[in-house]
Every structure is written in C-alpha cells, then in structure tokens.
Design a protein around this nucleic acid. Structure first.
Lengths: 110, 110
DNA sequence: TGCCTATTTGGCTATATTGCCAAATAACGA
DNA sequence: TCGTTATTTGGCAATATAGCCAAATAGGCA
C-alpha cells in the first residue's frame, strides 16, 4: 500500500470516525433542519454541556460542521450538504440486516 | 430523545464505526473490485493475519461484508452495493477541507 | 493418521474515547 | 465593575480499540 493511498484512507477514516457516535449523529440530524446553538442541542441531548461541546468539537475537527459565535452563543451548522444522501447507504446496511433477521426467523419457523 | 430514535442512532453509529478505520476502508475498496480471501488481503495490507481477521470480523458484525468459506480459505465480499456512493460524500468533506486549506494559505500570503 | 496451510480466537499491552465535574474564558447587562 | 449566562478546556476514571504473539480450529492431502 503506497503512502498516498494510506494518507487518503486515513483522511477518510477520520471523517467517518467523527460521525460514528449516536450523539454526533443526532447533532447532524438536528443541524440538517438548520443551525443550532450549543445550549439548545444540549437541552435536546440531555448530557452535560461539556460533553456536547466536545462532541461538537469532534465534528468540527472532522470537517462536518462550522461554528459561528454570535453574542455569547455559538451556533453550529453543517458544512457539507450531502450528509443526508450519505445516510441513505447506512440505512441500506441496516435494512439488509433487518431483512436477514426476518429471513432467519422465517427459516427457523418453517 | 425517544427510545426508538436512540436505538436507530446507535445502529447507524455501529455501521459507521465499523467503517471508520484505514485498514477497513482499504478492505472495502479492494472488495469493490470483487471478493478476496483473507490471505490475499493480508498480503496487501502487510499486517498480522490475526489483525486482518479481526478487522474483517468488525466489518462482518457491522453488516458491511459477507464471508464464504470454500476449502480452507474464507472469501469476503461486500454485502451492500452502495458503499461506493457512500464515499462520494466523504470525499466532498475532504475536498472542502482541502479548499479551506488553500483559502487559508491564500489569505496568509495576501 | 499426521502434516501443512488458512483462519479465528484468547490474551496481553498500549492507546484512544467517552462522560462527568470543576475551572477557565467570553459576552452581556445592571 | 460585578454577576449571570454560554461555552470551552483540563483532568480524571471507566471503557473500548488496535495490534501483536501464541494457541486453537478447520480443511486438504499424502
């Protein structure tokens, strides 16, 4: 595996890693509806503010969101518009799993 | 956040987590070309066979790949055809980052 | 059966992630 | 300036992940 390819794979992995947490996926889904401040996200998530802030920091480092400080609040928004399509594929994975589960139960019952 | 939504987010996160590693992304890219046995993947990756086997196990648990034992070899293949599109979005994230980096350098130079 | 190859599993250490609390920082209004 | 609110950062403990080696398992063949 050459160095370029390795770097590229590592870059991709960083992006995916930034998304790979339930709370961060929740944040992304909420930001699809429009920008949100940390305080509102925190209220919806129900974790410590510092925890939410750190998740936002991970998303920012991963290039998923942008922040904008206005007054004493910080508003976050999605940086890349395609995140929605992105999840289409994840859903396919989940649906395939679900179907396999159904198939499995059907076979057992037969 | 209700229980259903939470479960769904956790399921999505599991899929993304399974993909979020350079070696596993490499494997997925290679499997896009067609099925591969563990031994060939191991040779390409250059890590211990046991390490590669564990990565494959993670991908299998995540619903990304399927395995098929034939003789004393195990062949892995992609389970969901959309993985390619999937990466289109990750690429957009990376390109946006790259563009920002260029912008940043340009501003500095100005 | 016994040996060889392919793969998985167990066990270990090193490292990374998560989530909380407490403290630091920033902006706002009295 | 002081107090209040919003957010980030530091630090800690619990847990998860990654990679290696060694051992177990499975299949093929003499």
């Amino acid at each position: 595996m050459n160095v370029n390819r390795k770097n590229h794979l590592e870059a991709r992995a960083r992006v995916l890693k930034a998304l790979a947490h339930p709370t961060r996926l929740f944040i992304v889904e909420e930001l699809e509806k429009g920008e949100q401040c940390v305080c509102d996200l925190t209220a919806m998530i129900g974790a410590d503010v510092s925890t939410v802030s750190k998740h936002l920091s991970v998303l920012k480092q991963g290039g998923i969101v942008l922040d904008d400080k206005r007054g004493n609040q910080v508003f976050y928004r999605l940086r890349v518009p395609c995140i929605l399509n992105f999840f289409g594929c994840v859903e396919s994975v989940l649906e395939t799993q679900a179907q396999d589960h159904v198939d499995c139960l059907t076979r057992e019952g037969a």
